[in-house]
């Protein structure tokens, strides 16, 4: 009985591990473009937070405007690089 149980466990797992797969998931390296898109989303989220906190009355207007300008600059730089990379991709 013990031998049967051990054999069943062994064969079951062996079949599961080595059963030929018709399709496997591709391991792709994330590109700079994907990274920049993630970063852009993070900055947009930060901007949404800032707007919300400003509307909640947490920050005086001058603080809000200064912070917003900083974030918008950062977003602009990233968008410019995204556009540049996308243009390169399309050209290729």
């Amino acid at each position: 009985m013990t031998i049967l149980a051990c054999a069943a466990l062994l064969i079951g797992i062996f079949l599961y591990v080595f059963y030929p797969q018709s399709k496997t998931e591709e391991q792709t390296q994330k590109t700079r473009l994907e990274f920049l898109r993630e970063r852009k989303d993070a900055i947009y989220e930060n901007l949404r937070d800032l707007n919300f906190e400003y509307r909640a009355g947490k920050y005086p207007e001058e603080d809000y405007l200064a912070q917003r300008a900083g974030m918008e600059n950062e977003a602009a730089q990233i968008l410019a690089e995204i556009e540049f990379l996308e243009a390169g991709t399309h050209a290729a």
Binding site: L50, E62, D63
Partner: peptide, 8 residues
Amino acid sequence: AWRSTSFK
């Protein structure tokens, strides 16, 4: 605030 917080 993130980045910096003014005295006000």
